[in-house]
Nucleic acid binder design. Structure first.
Length: 418
RNA sequence: GGAGGUGUCGCAUAGUGGUCAAUUGCGCUAGUCUUGAAAACUAGAGCUUCACAGCUUCACAGGUUCGAAUCCUGUCACCUCCGCCA
């Protein structure tokens, strides 16, 4: 959600943002038209209310002086009331329309975000790590895992449908070790660890900006709850509706949760292996900062750094991508993806995604703080993946496979293995 | 699922039809004092506004009334007890 004043004053810029994010820009003109109407009506109703209040005050004074309300004044009050009654349904309708339109306005990409309609416009910022030289042809993680009895997708499909999987034996322990390793890094940097609810309400989905745009990408329960696609939803919503203190910022939290995604637009994509699945586990990091873009950009880089530290610890080669406007979420202001090297596929594949939002999410979630100067502001929010499995697990397996078909356990994970 | 209770401005509280933008304590912000801090004192804290003023708020949505934090109805959330259950 953007400040309506900002939209009014930067109409063209916001329209351009819609176009650059492949969204319909006509929503801005619609919104501003409704905004005009809304304000005109507000003015009209305010005037009537002033009249009503003045009238009531006059009666109040009479009563206080021991008199009785005059018939004239009571009649006048009734007339005003009737007029207001007539305007109320219109007011309600206009405000609902206004909120609906305002909720559909995307955030404006930061100045350094490349403009482009699809992933071909993403920019590689840097590549890190050395790709291992194999003296044999590396297999895909699927082959390696199936040979070791670490993965069963056939039976999973029978039970859970397409994209289902069982992790078996050491694959499970390795996954858990990966999650613990990820948590240990966040703990080291002072993040508060939590397990996050995955069954969330639509307010949380709306608040984090997944609704209305991503409504089709999620599963719903018969009670109207949503299976969250990321712990970001619960972690960012954690302080929803609260007024924080500047001295408490930044707030750093990390959480682990299962994640659910319908992957509706991806039929036929990544059908091999466990890169793209409906259910996975993820450690996520979320930061709430003061309302200052420089500060939030510093955190953006820092959070990216934590994920890079994890990958470097695992000795996995990766590249950092600056995502173009068309490949960003509606609420995001800037986004980096990290793609990790998969030697079995000879490809970099997305394993991490780091975004910052300014106050876009905070406005929707109503997370404010009292600043040192006494004013009340919305916090700025950020989030980033720390480790998502089985995707990252697959990367580890492809990079650490040995000629005999076994997999070496990365040194940093050994303390966490059982 | 059954019975009862609660929901007020960051937190906690006062407030049962007009004197309530709303009491008090803590916390917060600014100022006075101080080398600085603490303490004490003063002021401030919904929105629009330089201000005057106006509008709005007491979980949410309706209703009664000239006038609602206060009365009525519904909804939601939370708490306690009972039932069921990991």
């Amino acid at each position: 959600m953007l400040d309506i004043n900002f939209v009014r004053q930067n109409k063209d810029q916001v329209k351009e943002a819609c176009v650059n994010k492949n969204l319909d820009s006509s929503i801005i003109d619609q919104l501003l038209a409704v905004d005009e109407e809304r304000r005109a009506l507000q003015k009209e109703m305010d005037a009537l209310r002033t009249e009503a209040n003045t009238n009531a005050d006059a009666i109040k004074k009479m009563v206080a002086e021991g008199g009785r309300p005059s018939a004239d004044l009571v009649e006048n009050g009734k007339t005003i009331k009737t007029k207001l009654k007539e305007l109320e349904p219109k007011d309600k309708e206009i405000n609902e329309k206004f909120v609906e339109l305002a909720s559909g306005v995307p955030n404006v990409p930061a100045a350094d975000v490349p403009i482009g309609k699809d992933e071909s416009f993403n920019q590689v910022v840097r590549q890190e790590g050395n790709k291992r030289e194999f003296d044999f042809t590396p297999k895909t993680h699927e082959e390696v895992m199936k040979n070791l009895d670490w993965l069963d997708t056939d039976r999973a499909t029978k039970i859970a449908g397409f994209r289902g999987y069982f992790l078996k034996n050491d694959a499970l322990f390795l996954e858990q070790a990966l999650m613990l390793y990820a948590l240990s890094i966040m703990k080291k940097y002072g993040f508060t660890a939590m397990s996050a609810p995955i069954l969330v309400n639509k307010e949380a989905m709306f608040g984090t900006g997944y609704f209305p745009w991503g409504a089709e990408d999620h599963y719903y329960t018969q009670d109207g709850q949503i299976l969250a696609g990321t712990a970001e939803v619960a972690l960012t919503s954690y302080y929803g509706g609260e007024l924080l203190r500047e001295k408490d910022l930044p707030i750093k939290i990390c959480g682990i949760s299962p994640c659910f995604r319908r992957e509706v637009g991806s039929y036929g994509k990544d059908t091999k292996g466990i890169i793209r699945v409906h259910q996975f586990n993820k450690v996520e990091q979320v930061v709430l900062t003061v309302a200052d873009e420089e500060e939030t950009r510093k955190w953006h880089e820092q959070m990216l750094g934590y994920s890079e530290e994890l990958l470097k610890g695992l000795n996995l080669p990766y590249q950092v991508l600056l995502m173009c406007s068309g490949d960003m979420g509606a609420g995001q202001r800037k986004k980096y993806d990290i793609e990790t090297w998969f030697p079995g596929q000879s490809k970099y594949r997305e394993t991490h995604s780091a975004s910052y939002f300014n106050d876009f999410q905070a406005r929707r979630l109503n997370i404010r703080y009292q600043a040192k100067d006494g004013s009340t502001k919305f916090v700025y929010t950020l989030n980033n993946t720390v480790a998502a499995s089985p995707r990252l697990l697959a990367a580890v397996i492809e990079n650490y496979q040995k000629a005999d078909g076994s997999v070496e356990i990365p040194e940093v994970l050994r303390p966490f293995m059982i």
